[in-house]
């Protein structure tokens, strides 16, 4: 009988919780948890890198010649691929959040003396970290297949900063989607929606070559100004004020809406 062995001495010797109040340490612990998840789901992480790399190779070597016979299509398409990579990675957060929300673990976190939204912050921070790695890998492959930007260090920083903001915004939307989804499978549908978003934008081909209806849609697609800004920065081309302001406005707007929706849904989830 384990009943007797369980008695572990007087309760006075029990470790006393250091603080009943939520602290920054909670968030760090939860970020660590989410990052550890990635190491346990290497297949998912691998796909989030391999898929964009495959698309990159396909666009450069299969379609590239037909789209742009000058052979510099690679420079045009890489910024689009970077956006696709980061968007796809961010969207994967929906699956992680849905897994948490449908299991009992969120209830456990809620009944603990922590700020319960820390679990969401953990997923968001992990998403940023994962996407930094996958984006770096995709850029590495891009350089190998001949991508030659003409950007100053400052322009690189600005471009990557915008990509990070894009990831942050999409991740919060993914969190909200994960909270409304009935389960991880349903949430994974969101990753496909995000995966197809760049096709009707300036990511792979200039919208001017599209039929009028699609060109109009592409004009309103947030991917278009974000890609144009990143492309301009990386290729050392001028970016019009209207374009980068639109890119920033879209990112901040999506971020604010996504975050508010996530907070609201999380509170209502029980």
């Amino acid at each position: 009988m384990t009943a007797t062995t369980l008695t572990t001495g007087p309760r006075a010797t029990a470790p006393v919780p250091a603080a009943a109040r939520p602290g920054v340490g909670d968030t760090f612990a939860l970020v660590g948890r989410s990052l550890r998840h990635s190491t346990r789901q290497l297949d998912t992480v691998l796909i989030s890198v391999l898929l964009p790399v495959m698309l990159l190779l396909m666009f450069v070597y299969v379609f590239g010649g037909a789209i742009d016979s000058t052979g510099r299509y690679v420079d045009f398409v890489v910024p689009g691929i970077i956006l696709l990579t980061s968007g796809y990675g961010a969207a994967g957060t929906a699956v992680d959040v849905a897994t948490d929300a449908t299991g009992g673990i969120v209830d456990r976190f809620r009944s603990m003396p922590i700020r319960p939204t820390g679990v969401l912050t953990g997923h968001v921070a992990a998403s940023l970290a994962k996407n930094a790695i996958s984006t770096a890998l995709v850029i590495g492959v891009a350089l190998l297949v001949g991508f030659r930007g003409d950007a100053s260090a400052g322009a690189w920083v600005a471009a990557l900063g915008l990509v990070a903001l894009w990831v942050l915004a999409l991740t919060w939307v993914a969190v909200a989607i994960g909270l409304v989804a009935s389960g991880p499978e349903a949430a994974s549908g969101f990753t496909f929606a995000i995966l197809f978003l760049p096709y009707v934008s300036s990511a792979f081909v200039a919208p001017a070559t599209m039929p009028a209806v699609l060109e109009t849609i592409a004009g309103y697609n947030p991917v278009t100004p974000v890609t144009d800004t990143v492309r301009g920065l990386l290729l050392g081309m001028p970016v019009s004020t209207g374009t980068w302001v639109a890119a920033l406005a879209w990112c901040v707007g999506i971020l604010v809406v996504g975050r508010a929706a996530a907070a609201l849904l999380f509170r209502r989830a029980t």
Binding site: A29, R40, G104, I105
Partner: peptide, 26 residues
Amino acid sequence: GQYAAVDELLTGEENLRLMARLAHLP
């Protein structure tokens, strides 16, 4: 609760360490 509220992707030990940190044990 009725459904084991543990993290499937972590080990048993990692689960307990995470919960211990969140419970603010020294």
